[in-house]
Design a protein around this nucleic acid. Structure first.
Length: 296
RNA sequence: GGGCGGGUAGCGAAGUGGUUAAACGCAGCAGACUGUAACUCUGCUCCUUAGGGUUCGGCGGUUCAAAUCCGUCCCCUCCCA
């Protein structure tokens, strides 16, 4: 059985996962779209070597900041890891906050022949949202029905997929491919937001500014740098924000992210929630273990 | 003390007599989600027992009708003392 730990940013997934990995004598697979990047450490809230405490982590630091990442690649890498764990006879623990990525591994998502065609955007740049949506209607009515015309990005993606592997052909998004338990860590909204705000301050104290400056000075403008904590400080270095403003934005965007994550997990996953017990971490661990054992 | 400008929903900010419960932005809430997902997009946000009810600093007035006009008081910015 696969153990999956999800939850909003800042809730304490890392600590719980490490405790569980120790308890089950196994290793961790990260389910995070930003922690895959080297050099994005503080801002991505990567666990330090000290925190990892000897527990092996997979899918962390596997890419240079200049490289591209995607759901499809994540899916492939993690599925490989899962079979690898199986042959070694250990339980995979997947931990992370990137909902779609994790879902694409566990459920029947098919990304064959679905690579995005970047030229399409240019090709259709003259079309209004409505006109573009019309194009999709001709190529894949069903997708057109479910994608809002204003969601240009998704409309374009659906158009580019319409020839070989229509988005609408994939209807198995809720079909489970593995035996797994998904545990969601949660907390009252107000407390969660407070934790997030404090954590951002801590990141700044720990040297987030220097970390981002280094990427900035290297001229890295690739996608990873649009992650929260990075994009705002880039704007600060560009002179667009005052520092305080940038930090406030990081907090805000982190809170927004947490909210979106909760929505995704709540509605897309068959999940068992547990409260992240701040005063008694052992309680949180025991709760998690209880849920896992019940599912066995 | 005198002069100017101003006080609009959680905040910022339009509106300067009538389809205005009040544009828009932000925050907040809810949601969608198969190759950038820490992305992209959608809806809601004065109260309501859904019939209505109560709003635009306070009070009073003009008018068929006011956030919008008049009087007065309170508070804020800046300028002159």
């Amino acid at each position: 059985m696969i153990i999956v730990i999800v939850g909003p940013t800042g809730i304490g997934k890392t600590n719980l996962s490490i405790a569980l990995a120790k308890h089950y004598n196994t290793e961790i697979i990260s389910g995070d779209s930003v922690q895959v990047y080297k050099e994005l450490n503080i801002g991505s809230a990567k666990a330090s070597a000290l925190e990892m405490d000897g527990i092996t982590h997979h899918l962390i630091d596997i890419l240079e900041p200049t490289e591209d990442f995607s759901v499809a690649l994540f899916q492939k890498l993690v599925r490989n890891k899962i079979t690898d764990f199986k042959t070694r006879g250990i339980t995979p623990i997947i931990v992370g906050g990137t909902g779609l990525y994790i879902k694409s591994v566990l459920y029947d998502y098919n990304f064959e022949n679905t690579k995005r065609d970047d030229k399409l955007g240019d090709l259709y740049s003259d079309l209004s949202n409505q006109e573009l949506h019309q194009v999709l209607q001709e190529k894949d009515v069903e997708s057109a029905y479910s994608i809002h015309p204003n969601n240009r990005k998704r409309v374009l993606q659906a158009i580019s997929r319409s020839a070989l592997n229509k988005v609408s052909n994939n209807k198995n998004k809720d079909e489970k491919l593995y035996d797994f338990v998904i545990i969601g860590l949660t907390l009252e909204r107000e407390k969660l937001y407070e934790i997030i705000n404090n954590r951002v301050d801590r990141m700044i104290e720990e040297g987030l500014l220097a970390e981002v400056k280094q990427l900035y000075d290297k001229g890295i403008r690739s996608n990873c740098v649009s992650a929260i904590g990075y994009k705002e400080l880039y704007k600060y270095f560009d002179g667009e924000y005052a520092l305080i403003e940038g930090i406030a934005k990081i907090k805000q965007h982190s809170r927004n992210l947490a909210k979106k994550q909760l929505t995704f997990f709540n509605n897309q996953f068959d999940i068992t929630w547990i409260n992240s017990d701040l005063n008694d971490f052992n309680n949180t661990i025991n709760n998690a273990i209880q849920i896992i054992e019940d599912k066995r």
